[in-house]
């Protein structure tokens, strides 16, 4: 999810299609991949997800970082899972057998994880968070959740700035973190200060909202336009892709 992006002109194909279609496609792909078990399906999904990620305009560096983090966790699964699954032993690690069934399950988990993450980054990664919030509200996600999304994005930056300011204030007075009581106490103060400030700020924001006539209902300015010439081909292709995956799995 991107916290900005509105200042960039939408140039890439994905940025021009109706964001609702993107979100639906992502939900469809992730849904099928999550329940799929056949390697053919998972392989096809991974390939599709790779294409999505490649054309999405996400920087490669970011993709690599995300995938590295994911696969570090999946590696652990891949090492442990075959040991704990019953079945035909293939080879032994110490006294424990690695089973065929276990290896296959582990491979499926790795494929699934990568396909889901790549598809999400590719389809949703460059969607501005505010837009995602709006999409959710068009899908009748409860108002409170939508507001939470939109506000979180708006104030993440403010909190990060506040944190940086407090940290800088500590640093200019010679604070160097170490393994000692002074460090723990100082970080305790820092966390407490952030909490109190956040609370104060939320009260002031609520006041500002009241001043502008807020009575609990959040209205959206943006209305997405479904343009047939642009969105129908995408929607059809997206629907076919999801159907194809489902067909590979269940036919």
């Amino acid at each position: 999810m991107e916290t900005d992006g509105c200042n960039a002109l939408p140039a890439r194909y994905l940025d021009r299609v109706d964001p609702r279609a993107r979100v639906l496609l992502a939900i469809g792909v992730v849904g099928v991949v999550a329940v799929a078990g056949r390697f053919l399906t998972l392989g096809a999904a991974l390939a599709g997800a790779l294409v999505c990620a490649a054309v999405s305009g996400n920087p490669w560096r970011l993709l690599r970082r995300r995938l590295a983090a994911l696969n570090a966790v999946l590696l652990l699964v891949a090492v442990v899972l075959p040991l704990t699954t019953e079945g035909t032993p293939v080879f032994h690690a110490g006294a424990r057998p690695y089973t065929r069934e276990g290896l296959l399950t582990a491979a499926a988990v790795v494929l699934k994880g990568n396909a889901i993450v790549l598809a999400s980054i590719g389809l949703l990664g460059t969607l501005p968070a505010a837009t995602l919030g709006h999409v959710l509200s068009h899908f009748y996600v409860p108002d409170k959740l939508v507001q939470l999304t939109v506000f979180t994005v708006r104030y993440l930056d403010v909190f990060r700035r506040e944190y940086t300011r407090l940290r800088a204030a500590m640093r200019v007075r010679g604070f160097r973190p170490g393994v000692n009581r002074h460090t723990y106490r100082s970080f305790g103060y820092l966390a407490g200060m952030l909490l109190v400030r956040s609370l104060d700020r939320s009260e002031r924001i609520a006041a500002a909202m009241k001043c502008r006539g807020f009575r609990g209902r959040y209205y959206l300015l943006d209305h997405f336009a479904f343009s047939p010439a642009r969105d129908v081909p995408f929607a059809v292709a997206a629907a076919l892709a999801v159907l194809a995956l489902a067909w590979l799995e269940w036919a």
């Binding site: 968070a129 700020r201 500002a208 909202m209 502008r212 009575r215």
Partner: peptide, 19 residues
Amino acid sequence: DDQLFCATVAEDVAFGPLN
């Protein structure tokens, strides 16, 4: 920072009128 709570300028300025 207390007053501008929407992501984009248009949404923020429109917040009052929409309310």
